[in-house]
Write a protein that binds this DNA or RNA. Sequence first.
DNA 1: AAGTCGTGGCA
DNA 2: TTGCCAAGACT
Length: 297
Amino acid sequence: MTTTPHPSLPSLHRTVLGWYQANARELPWREPDAGPWAVMVSEFMLQQTPVKRVLPVWHAWMERWPTPGALAAEAPGEAVRAWGRLGYPRRALRLHAAATAITEEHGGVVPSDHAALLALPGVGEYTAAAVASFAFRQRHAVLDTNVRRVFARLVEGQEYPPNATTAAERRTAAGLLPEQPETAAAWAVAVMELGALVCTARSPECGRCPVAAECAWRLAGSPPHEGPPRRGQSYAGTDRQVRGLLLAVLREAEGPVTQRQLDAVWGEPVQRARALDGLVADGLVEPVQPGVYRLPS
DNA sequence: AAGTCGTGGCA
DNA sequence: TTGCCAAGACT
């Protein structure tokens, strides 16, 4: 005879959804009146950047550019400037490009179709699913780093998920997804929130976890991660640091900037030149004339 | 498909 | 202090 070794799927859903109702953060892009554009802007900003740092920039951005058309009407350099110190400024350029595509190809309306979202610049598998789920209440597996970690522990008994998203992870996520679209959308954000607030990377608070009793990792004694350590991201002395320093000069200047101003931020000329070339190649910086640069117009 | 791409907070 | 890591996308 087969018994049911685990609580039913609907029970798991109810548990996590109930936890979310009681514990979710109030975030402006989750408000009922936050439209798809508000959600999309938040998703771009939240790619690799913590909520706390995103909040002020998101507010300023939405006030200045309440629609994709408003952003598309301005120079991409203004988006880079308004991006401030969120990091990975190519995201600002891609968000501007996405706004332009929405304006030109979708009549200024953020598309609800997953494939159409995926075709936008800067929108990958995660962001397409997130916008379709959070803004349009569709049924999609939303696999971000939080969700992947929760499932790795809860289902696989592993402390951390693999480096890259695997087919097995997609199957797991799809298998746990509630049937009803509205419930699936609620589930997606709830699991993500659980990963962000309780089932965290470093010191998970299993005592506060609503599904601790069913967690495969916990039941296995919380074994530490096996396999190769995930490569840390070095920063000091890299091109990325130099690019950041150079772009900060451009952002904070009113208009064009001279070569001398840029030279002042980094002593080593070869790396400095390589970093500046990279910024130009990425479209983040625009040469005006020899020795003069500005944000893209 | 492994590397690249910012920035800052926190243990 | 130093290393880890935070709602990834792109090549």
